[in-house]
Design a protein around this nucleic acid. Structure first.
Lengths: 346, 346
DNA sequence: CATAAAAATTGAACCGATTTAAGTTATTGT
DNA sequence: ACAATAACTTAAATCGGTTCAATTTTTATG
């Protein structure tokens, strides 16, 4: 039904090779023929079959994005950034979800490989499984970029600079006059939480505040985890921290509920900072100060690194680790005054 | 580098046709050969090149999803549903964003067509542009499903049942004892807002409450729009509505801010219901009662309808319009008592 | 004008699968 | 033992492009 390169060739009275030359701006095609053939192409609204092209060129113009769950705003914003760059470069993006399941991650990697995507961007699961598929990718020189580090896997990584983000957040707390600062951690398996802890510690050190393990509470990632952690703090004014840095916004929100219920006033009694800028933060009654992850930028950068690697597949570029700066968004739980109600929301 | 069907054929001492027969479970291949060839396939971990397969079969196993902005939770949850069904059926999903730009929508439709995706799921822009591309799709019998109606385009549609959702929300308000109910509308161009208005009106009629245009306020879709609308209500108790149904959650949140600032207590003075269950709703100080859009289900259903159409491309199935039921999520702004802080959150 | 050099074009092979008509081998019945 | 039939297997065409060596056409040069 659709026109083929042969149809155009016949109509133009040239060979298929010549039409192909016109399509790819091959300079060996004379200007005259080029124009004549192009006119016919446009007249019939012909565009080459990308599948046939992909087979001949051994490249699809497709890249795969593998995340845990595309409906999670963190990942969907990354996807937005990836898609932008794809769009700008004539690529398309295939998305698949692992649902935090190693088998599905492996399966998806392989499905996309067999679909011959030109490269992969993977937000990998961490710890607790064979890394065979990643090593396979490396051995096969299949271009891919990770959105979180796996120490045993030597590859390109693009991620947020957690350590500095945490450092800045903690310094901000300190500059607000806070002196006893707690950290509520993420899930045990999270490298990111470890890094945020480091940044927090470094800030304490730089300002001569003593660090104590008493100030670190086991958290998690859900609101309930933060709520529970909030219940563990003493209500005694001299004992309760006056500032708390949380692994993420959900933790912070749960924490604030627990503290508020028990009579604390935020930020007067306890200042709170979250992490992620999850979209909810701005809408809260007392809006949440938080460390924004530049997710869209991470997506963009990952795609750019990947495309560069795809285009230089033969060259042996060194692997790079790119840290994207976070941004401290100062709202009411630490630093900003109660504002007119609608402001502070983007 | 990767193995081809020819390599396997050589290793097994059969022809490529036989290997192909094995791969596709063609019953004319003898059991003995089948097993022998399969062993070699597995031994070498061979999988056929999907691109070559796509070219030969003229089907890619790809479907395209076109939305306004994948980072919007509404669309990313739809995407999740679509991807699930794709995954279950051996398809993959390509996503592209239109960013509310007709030209980009047209461009994306064409890019995906030329990539030979087997079908498209489109959340279309509405009103205000030529619908040529949709008519082209129909003329070419290209399978596609819309996620919002365009009156002039005769195609499969899967969407939420706004009218019934609005009806149920309004009835819920009435059953809470509310008697003077306002509606804050969506953007002017929204068919969905019109339908929600109809549902709201029908509920008023069914319960013998008088409808008045005074009760309908021009809204929009952002928090600010709701805030502004909130300022237009009289503070006089006898004049102010005691229940307000909003086009979406952002409107509701903005509205609540305006009312609260002006001394109204929610839900005691004014009960409020939003639409979407946007994820923020549950986290608010006074959690928001809202009409949940079954977005993931919409995605699943759309994908199922599309796959059915793809599989029956030659048959002339009639177009269907599928309405997915919404779900009223009762929280504190209307109907639920102030609960323990963490509950009511999923 | 003859000829070498440069430019333009083409035929055929190739990418890696599927499909079908035709050919080969095995099985069955008489 | 032999023809008829059934069961397998294969060679070749096809999908719609790209590429390159070979050929034809054009241009430049002595």
């Amino acid at each position: 039904m659709a026109m083929t390169i042969g149809d155009i060739a016949r109509l133009a009275g040239v060979s298929r090779a010549t039409v192909s030359g016109v399509l790819n701006n091959n300079p060996t095609v004379s200007k005259k023929t080029h124009e004549r053939v192009l006119a016919i192409i446009e007249q019939h609204n012909y565009t080459p079959n990308q599948i046939a092209r992909a087979l001949a060129l051994n490249q699809t113009g497709l890249i795969g994005l593998i995340v845990k769950d595309i409906s999670n705003p963190l990942y969907s914003k990354i996807a937005l950034g990836v898609e932008e760059v794809c769009d700008e470069n004539g690529y398309s993006m295939i998305i698949s979800n692992t649902h935090v399941d190693w088998d599905r991650q492996d399966k998806n990697i392989n499905i996309l490989k067999h679909r011959r995507v030109d490269g992969l961007i993977i937000f990998p699961l961490q710890r607790g499984h064979t890394l065979q598929d990643f090593h396979d990718l490396i051995r096969e020189k299949y271009p891919f970029v990770l959105l979180a580090e796996i120490p045993e896997v030597n590859a390109d990584v693009v991620r947020a600079d957690d350590e500095t983000g945490a450092y800045n957040a903690t310094v901000h707390l300190i500059k607000q006059g806070v002196r006893k600062i707690a950290y509520i951690s993420g899930p045990e398996s999270s490298y990111a939480s470890d890094r945020r802890l480091s940044g927090y510690k470094r800030a304490l050190m730089d300002f001569n505040l003593t660090f104590s393990t008493d100030l670190v509470r086991e958290g998690g990632w859900r609101l309930e985890d933060g709520y529970k952690a909030g219940l563990t703090f003493s209500l005694d004014k001299s004992d309760c921290p006056d500032g708390i840095f949380c692994y993420n916004d959900s933790i912070a929100i749960g924490l604030i509920r627990a503290l508020t219920e028990r009579g604390k006033l935020i930020p007067r009694d306890v200042a709170v900072i979250g992490f992620d800028d999850s979209g909810v933060s701005a809408y809260l009654e007392t809006s949440l100060t938080t460390v924004a992850q530049p997710t869209q930028k991470i997506g963009r950068m990952a795609a750019e690194v990947l495309l560069k690697r795809i285009k230089n597949k033969k060259k042996k570029l060194p692997h790079q680790k790119i840290l994207i700066e976070t941004e401290l968004v100062i709202r009411e739980t630490c630093g900003a005054n109660k504002k007119g109600t609608v402001s502070g929301i983007n």
